[in-house]
Computed example of a mutant assay.
Amino acid sequence: MQWNSASEFFAMGGYGLYVWGSYGMALLIMVVEPLMAARRHRAALAAAAQDEGL
């Protein structure tokens, strides 16, 4: 596929919203998932430490 301008590239032949939206969602998930995993890990460690103290 060949584009004559940057706007044609970003429009992706009329599918730009779908293509770039998909890339955006994938990027968002790749950023949020490690943060949520770290949060769950800290919570699990805190729960384990609390259980040890009983």
Score class of each variant (00 low, 15 high):
1 M>P: 00
2 Q>N: 09
2 Q>M: 06
2 Q>Y: 04
3 W>F: 11
3 W>N: 02
5 S>F: 02
5 S>N: 06
5 S>Q: 04
6 A>E: 01
6 A>R: 00
6 A>G: 02
6 A>C: 05
7 S>Y: 04
7 S>T: 09
7 S>K: 06
7 S>Q: 06
8 E>S: 03
8 E>V: 03
8 E>P: 00
9 F>L: 05
9 F>Q: 02
9 F>S: 01
9 F>E: 01
10 F>T: 01
10 F>Y: 09
11 A>F: 01
11 A>V: 03
11 A>Y: 03
12 M>S: 08
13 G>M: 06
13 G>W: 05
13 G>K: 05
13 G>A: 07
14 G>L: 03
14 G>M: 02
14 G>Q: 03
15 Y>E: 11
16 G>H: 01
16 G>C: 04
16 G>I: 01
16 G>P: 00
17 L>D: 12
17 L>Q: 10
18 Y>Q: 11
18 Y>K: 05
18 Y>I: 13
19 V>E: 06
19 V>Y: 11
19 V>M: 11
19 V>T: 10
20 W>A: 03
21 G>T: 00
22 S>G: 14
25 M>Y: 08
25 M>G: 04
25 M>V: 11
26 A>L: 11
26 A>R: 04
26 A>V: 08
26 A>T: 07
26 A>N: 07
27 L>P: 01
27 L>T: 09
27 L>E: 04
28 L>N: 03
28 L>S: 05
29 I>A: 07
30 M>G: 06
30 M>A: 08
30 M>P: 01
31 V>Q: 05
32 V>F: 10
32 V>R: 03
32 V>A: 14
32 V>C: 10
34 P>K: 08
34 P>D: 08
35 L>D: 05
35 L>S: 09
35 L>I: 09
36 M>Y: 11
36 M>G: 05
36 M>L: 15
37 A>I: 13
37 A>P: 02
37 A>V: 11
38 A>T: 12
38 A>N: 14
38 A>S: 15
39 R>E: 14
39 R>D: 15
39 R>C: 14
39 R>M: 15
39 R>V: 15
40 R>I: 11
40 R>Y: 13
42 R>P: 04
42 R>D: 15
42 R>K: 13
43 A>V: 06
43 A>D: 13
44 A>P: 03
44 A>C: 10
44 A>T: 07
44 A>V: 07
45 L>V: 10
45 L>P: 01
45 L>H: 10
46 A>C: 05
46 A>T: 05
47 A>D: 11
47 A>M: 07
47 A>N: 08
47 A>C: 07
47 A>S: 09
47 A>R: 12
48 A>H: 07
48 A>E: 10
48 A>P: 02
49 A>S: 10
49 A>G: 08
49 A>V: 04
50 Q>K: 13
50 Q>I: 04
50 Q>H: 13
50 Q>W: 12
51 D>C: 10
51 D>T: 07
52 E>A: 14
53 G>C: 14
53 G>H: 13
54 L>T: 13
54 L>A: 15
54 L>H: 12
